[in-house]
Amino acid sequence: MRTNAFVVYGGAALAALLAGALLALGGGASPLQAGAALWEGMFGSAYAIGSSLNTAAALGLIATGFTVAHRAGLVNVGGEGQLCAGGIAAAFAGVSLPDATPTLVALPLVLLVAFAAGGAWAAIAAWLKVSRGTSEVITTLLLNFVGLAMVLLVVHEEGLLRQPVTSSQTLPQSEPLIEGARLPLLGLEGSPATIAFLIAAVAAVAVAVLLRRTATGTRLTAVGHSVTAAARLGLPVRRLQFWSLTSAGGLAGMAGGALVATTPFVLAESFSSGYGFAGLVVGLLARGSLAAVAGVALLFGLLASGGMNLQLAAGVPASSVQIVQSLLTIFIAGAVILRRTS
């Protein structure tokens, strides 16, 4: 059984790799050359590893939240929208605080505000779910687009967050956050890695403890497996559903806050980089295990920065990495279904 799983997952990875090699060939580079560029982008420099860690932190936070909601049987497809809500709130807080606010006050405040905003965004869907029975898959998905549009709105409107327009070259983005609201670097030589990585790690450990070692976690599991049985046994089903989805939104919101509080410290149009959706994929692939969340988030973070280098060094479009990632997702999902039916 175990070996079977290994073969299946290994096979999935191999098949994705093969597809990647073909894509590299199509892009005009030899697979070896492309592989070397990818590797260089992933592990070649402290800078590469650092930016991978930052990406991994955001993906990890979102996937951790996804896992919480998933434990209660809810599928949070709204990471992107919640990320946007969190980013907007963090930017508002981060630019309006007095300049001299110390980091110890400003940073927790910004992250908290981001958490609350992401949570509130998810709470809309959660409330609809528990009071009206509306499918959270639909509501969270649709709220993504509202969230993305709101980011556009606030960075284009001077009355909202747009930096003062001084020339036609002024980018539609917010002013930079105050010094104290920025995420400190981990302090590794030449690395842009911030403490976001630590925050994500702490969140994952806390959630792992919550889910596996507390009564609440067991209750969430019960709700996730059988709403009818959980209700029959007197568990507060609606409250558990509401708060699990809301916390999932909170964690995604915090990821948004962390992105805004990382270089270049502004809220810009495409600040989310699709991490909300990528985080969802990480959560899906991890299948409820937070150790797997950490692993897959790290892998996806590394692949993202590797992809950039692939484009720069080997001339292969960075999107081919996304194709490989998507293939990997499909293969693994397929393998899971295959194993379940066999």
Binding site: T214, A215, T218, R219, T221, A222, H225, S226, T228, A229, A230, R232, L233, G234, L235
Partner: peptide
Amino acid sequence: HEGCVPAMSIAENLFLPRLSEFA
């Protein structure tokens, strides 16, 4: 569907309504 949660353990099924007693 109603009497128990088949995917959970016997212990959890027995004490789901009374988990707080074991905190």
